[in-house]
Amino acid sequence: MKTAAAGCGLLLVFLAVYWSAVWLYLVSALLLGGLGTALWWLWRTDRLVRGRDRAWRREEAVNAGRRTLAEVDGMTGTEFEELVASLCRRDGCTDVRRVGGANDNGADVVGSLPDGRSVVIQCKRYAPSSTIASRELRDLLGARVHFGADLAVFVTTTRFSGPSEKFALQHGILAVHRDHFGLWNNGTSLLTLSEVNGKGQGDSRHRGRWKRTYGR
C-alpha cells in the first residue's frame, strides 16, 4: 500500500511539473482509448445482432419448408418436387434445380450436397395406400449414370415394398419413405437420413396397421 501511495504521489508531482508538456498526450490517449472502447462495443453489438439474425433466418428457413403430410398429400407432382428442392437448399445443398418433366431421364431434382458430392433425386408423391415397386427404383439407377451423380435418392410420400427397399440398399440408393420424409420435412437433414436408410417401415404388424389405415 505504501509503495502504491508513493507511486501515485510521484505521478502527481510529475504531472504538476510537466503538465504543460504532457497534457496534450494524455488527453489524446484518453480520447483514443474512449474511441477504441466505443468501436469495440459497436463491433461486438453488430456481431451479436448478426448472429441472432442468422439464427432467426435459419429457423425461418426450416419453418418455411415445413408442411403437414396431409398438405403434402394434396400437392401436385410438380409442387412436391419444388418442396423437395427447397428442403435440399435448406440443408445447404447448392446448384439445386428441378429437372422433372418430359424427357427428364429419370430425375426430378439434381444438385450438390454440402460435402461436394453430386446428387440426383426421384420424387414420387403417391397416395399413402400405394407401394413403391423395385422397377421404379431401376429408373433412378439410369438417372444416376446419366447425370454422373455420386448419390441417388428416392423420395416418396408412401412406403417401399420389401423387394424395393432391399434393391435400394443393394444399389446404394437412399430410400426416403413417408416416415423419413416426415422427419426431413420437420428439420432433420437429408444426410442424417442416410444413417437410417432401409429402416423405419416397421415389422409385419406395423405394415398390417398401415394397410388397414390406408386401405391396402
Rank of each mutant, 00 (worst) to 15 (best):
L140V: 06
G208L: 13
T3K: 08
K166C: 06
R144H: 07
S204Y: 08
S20A: 11
K211C: 09
D104W: 03
G198I: 12
E71K: 10
L12V: 09
R117K: 13
P163V: 13
G77C: 07
C88A: 08
E60Y: 02
L48G: 01
S86M: 09
V120D: 02
G65H: 11
G187T: 05
K199P: 00
L183P: 00
E79N: 08
W41P: 00
T158F: 09
A127Q: 15
T156F: 05
Q201D: 11
H206R: 15
W41I: 14
E59Y: 01
R54D: 04
W23P: 00
R50F: 08
H146A: 09
V17M: 09
G7K: 15
R47E: 10
G34E: 02
S164I: 04
C123G: 04
Y25I: 09
G162N: 10
V84C: 07
T68Y: 04
L48E: 15
L87T: 05
S164W: 07
V72Y: 04
W40C: 03
C8M: 13
Q201T: 08
V109G: 00
W23A: 03
A102S: 13
D46Q: 14
G182H: 10
L31S: 05
T3R: 12
N186F: 08
P128D: 02
L12P: 00
V110Q: 00
T156P: 08
W23H: 15
